[in-house]
Design a protein around this nucleic acid. Structure first.
Lengths: 347, 347
DNA sequence: TTGAAAGCGCTAACAG
DNA sequence: CTGTTAGCGCTTTCAA
């Protein structure tokens, strides 16, 4: 019933606990009689022995556990990122504790306390907003490495996507297709990736002498995309395209248009960011920018393993994915597709 | 640098370690001088002390960690279920270790070993296929509770959805709408929920004297739905409806139809199961059956907390969600919607 | 090449 | 009401 201990194994093998420990830890390099080792191994198998991690942790002050603290595991972008982290961790014999802060800074802070008590060896952190750095700092001071993923936090190693460039290329793409009256549904102002996307977009637009017809801030959820687009459509009737800071918001906008009998892409074009699965499932297929979520997770975990604590930013490239939701429009585009009718619907 | 210990706190507060421990564990019920407690609390704060979990675990033989072992965290159904588990666990001060077996029985088995070493207090288990019960049994023999979620494993407590009834009601729904030539895209034969859905469906069909035109097995992924439907369409041209064992496969079928220029729902109706977010995002909106994934997770975790080890099955109700992907067709339906043209496309 | 002994940080009798 | 003591299961000097 009660699990076997190292002493049980030692007794059965007729050796001392230290010897068993040495076998367990591969500290028998060369200088251990093969026969002794055999006996120990046999005893381990006979008793179905597994070393208690807690005891080992207590001695070594290493838990073999890393955590990933993120805002919402049911968001496909984050679950992909988490998979990337876990895969690399698993390869290196580390366990992954997934902590879902549920988009709440309060819960996030409670998780920091938990992680501290748990004694995790490292944390991949996707902050909810502008994080209360003190919590993270305290852990860090105790020698726990922290790598921030997908977003930026001052003074921390970061692995993120090239949001600025990607967003700029999306803007150029739309401009080249003939879109001019463009509204932007941004993410939360305190999230770096959201702001990078917004700024990259505006910069490219302004570089071409174009001003957005509106910039509204949401919170990256499907719901907020729907609400913002709905509001926008009821206020303005001249929008040619809506660009959202992520795919879920873009899909929300798509649904809002649908509910208002505004045809996409005939009357209005829509684009997103991330290239998560739903962006491909939706019709018209979303024009978006592919962000390598899984790879961001992998790279963040690798930095953790490397103990790379420099505040350096690692930026992964992104890729424009043209979809059917933004067909060519107006006069100056290449226009290989037949022009759709684009009557403007009043109200 | 090195974290403070209980002795440091005791020294600073001028008390013994046991007193600090008592404060920490709320074992001061009534009989502790308030002033003493104050001093301890002050010392704890002054030293920014957090008890080391490893040491506590070593003594109490409880880690305060539960695990959820599942096939794919990036599947929206499972990530929702995981959230339900984690939410209840968090409420009770337990940490959740999410283990993603990546649909591989081998990885699943390696995770069992890890969980054993980790000394988790309980496991919510969504098996990949028909699980190698020996691994789970060994843990169980050590007093670790295991609750199986979403699927059934002989001899284990189970929390699942009423797949059979839900699938039967979906079948009846389609029959009442006038569908007769129906193909079924099933899940893996060794997964109980897949088989329950299949059997419930066939039973209802046969109860009405109808035989399915085909039954093909896939693996619950979007991809397999696409492939199977593609194959089906190229072999038969008389299918009136495709019903898939889950929404992702149904969406795959939707895309296959699209790629073959078969109009949904005009030429063929499509239905799924689960009611995950993508089912609502897709157009036509999918007819499906809502499965309470989050609640399954919550209930599984609650059983774990209760130590309810009986092999009893807890079955949660599901709900038919009619969508636009299966409009009324043929003669015997109520037909509140205008009939669509339904020419059969050859090739 | 192996064993003995000390102790990681905490909790739980048992005293007082 | 509080302190003393004895480990939990493991690793790691230090000796032999």
């Amino acid at each position: 019933m009660g699990r076997a201990t190292i002493r049980d194994v030692a007794r059965l093998a007729g050796v001392s606990p230290s010897t068993v420990s040495r076998v367990l830890n591969g500290k028998d390099a060369g200088h251990m009689r093969p026969e002794t080792k055999e006996r120990v191994l046999a005893a381990i198998k006979a008793l179905d022995y597994t070393p208690a991690k807690a005891a080992r942790t207590l001695r070594k002050k290493k838990t073999g556990v890393i955590a990933i603290l993120l805002p919402d595991i049911s968001n496909p972008f984050f679950s992909l990122l988490a998979r990337g982290v876990a895969a690399v961790a698993f390869e290196h014999g580390l366990s992954t504790l997934i902590c879902d802060s549920d988009n709440s800074e309060d819960k996030e802070n409670r998780y920091w306390d938990l992680l501290r008590a748990e004694g995790v060896d490292g944390v991949v952190f996707v902050p909810v907003g502008r994080p209360d750095e003190t919590k993270a700092h305290r852990l860090r001071r105790r020698g726990v490495d922290i790598v921030v993923a997908d977003r930026r936090v001052e003074g921390y190693p970061t692995v993120e996507a090239d949001n600025r460039t990607g967003s700029a290329s999306l803007a150029s793409h739309l401009l080249s297709l003939g879109y001019r009256r463009i509204a932007y549904l941004a993410g939360p102002p305190d999230v770096s990736s959201a702001m990078d996307r917004l700024e990259g977009f505006l910069e490219a637009l302004r570089g071409a002498g174009v001003e957005p017809v509106a910039v509204l801030h949401g919170d990256f959820t499907y719901r907020s995309g729907y609400v913002l687009a709905h509001r926008l459509f009821s206020r303005r009737h001249d929008v040619e395209a809506i660009v959202a800071a992520n795919d879920l918001m873009a899909i929300g906008a798509l649904r809002a248009a649908e509910d208002l009998n505004i045809s996409v892409p005939n009357q209005v074009g829509i684009a997103g960011f991330d290239h998560v699965l739903p962006a491909d499932l939706v019709r018209p297929r979303l024009t978006t920018v592919a962000v390598p979520a899984y790879e961001i997770g992998e790279e963040a975990m690798r930095r953790l393993l490397r103990g790379d604590n420099s505040a350096e930013r690692r930026v992964l490239p992104v890729k424009l994915i043209p979809g059917e939701s933004t067909p060519p429009r107006g006069g100056d585009s290449s226009g290989e597709e037949a022009r759709r009718n684009r009557p403007r619907d009043k109200s």
